[in-house]
Design a protein around this nucleic acid. Structure first.
Length: 269
DNA sequence: AAACTTCTCAACCGCCTATAA
DNA sequence: TTTATAGGCGGTTGAGAAGTT
């Protein structure tokens, strides 16, 4: 029990790191409640887990964020809000804590100062957008609204030998939003999905070549998510989604969200 | 060199959800 | 159905580093 007196807090020593690393190597990740005992550490389970995930885990990337990473953070934050673990999941080697810290110390301030400018042209670019979050984060097994609908929620798209699913817009429900939106609510059931494919001005993504020109045009615009930049370097091919040329892997970037809807009880990840 | 301020980021805290009993 | 426990998350804090006066 972490409420118990006598548990160590604060910075980890090299010896504690060594013990924790050894324990994870032997028993693997998970069962965090057993880790303090197994490792011989006078730390709570959460402290052990955090230390491992944010510092000791192999392949954690240290040092400066690259321009590409920063760009991706900005665009994913626009899409997902403060969902740091989801954002970090798209940045190999980066932890949610790293991303959150970077945002709070670098990007958040920039955006605030940017928004404070009286220059209309600049303000347009940096305009704050109401992020409609695809809540809840995880779906329980009892998706009452989905019962009997899952087979019709997605349309299959064949791309070469790949079968992809895209949401069948007419069947999607309105998911509860954590805070009331100041904008008028649409009367149909595709509000949150539309929010993923409209730009910062509230216009539908236009199927133009300019919308795939890259993040430099408008780093805060979701349009730029649909570019080759966010696709892995290998195995790229394109398909057409409602007039928009998309990379397969761009689409798969968002497949997790669709997976959330169709998995029926599977947690994210 | 000293005092003070600002910045960075590792770590803590409290809350939420899932699961098992 | 209720309760206890564990895993996980985002918000926040505070110690130390870096910068400024």
């Amino acid at each position: 029990m972490e409420g118990m007196l006598g548990l160590r807090k604060g910075a980890w020593t090299d010896e504690e790191d060594r013990l924790l690393r050894k324990c994870i190597e032997k028993y693997g990740e998970g069962k965090w409640h057993q880790v303090p005992f197994r490792a011989g550490l006078n730390r709570c389970r959460k402290s052990c887990r955090l230390r491992w995930l944010n510092y000791l885990r192999p392949n954690i990337k240290r040092g400066e964020f690259s321009a590409d990473e920063v760009d991706l953070i900005i665009r994913l934050h626009k899409l997902l809000g403060n969902r740091w673990s989801l954002i970090a999941g798209r940045l190999p080697g980066r932890t949610a804590n790293d991303v959150k810290n970077y945002w709070n110390t670098h990007l958040h301030k920039k955006r605030i100062s940017c928004g404070a400018t009286t220059n209309d042209k600049t303000r347009k670019t940096c305009m704050r957008v109401n992020v409609i979050k695809p809540q809840p984060r995880t779906f329980s097994k009892n998706l009452s609204w989905m019962s009997g609908k899952s087979s019709t929620l997605f349309e299959k798209i064949e791309v070469g030998s790949n079968i992809l699913r895209k949401p069948a817009l007419s069947t999607l429900p309105i998911l509860p939003s954590p805070s009331p939106s100041p904008t008028p609510q649409p009367t149909h059931g595709i509000q949150w999905w539309e929010s993923l494919v409209v730009d910062g001005e509230g216009d539908q993504v236009a199927p133009t070549a300019s919308s795939t020109t890259g993040p430099g045009d408008d780093p805060l615009c979701f349009n730029s998510l649909w570019t080759e930049e966010t696709a892995p370097a290998t195995g790229q091919s394109t398909f057409n989604l409602e007039g928009q040329t998309c990379w397969i892997n761009d689409f798969s970037l968002d497949m997790n969200i669709w997976d959330l809807l169709s998995a029926e009880g599977q947690a994210v990840n």
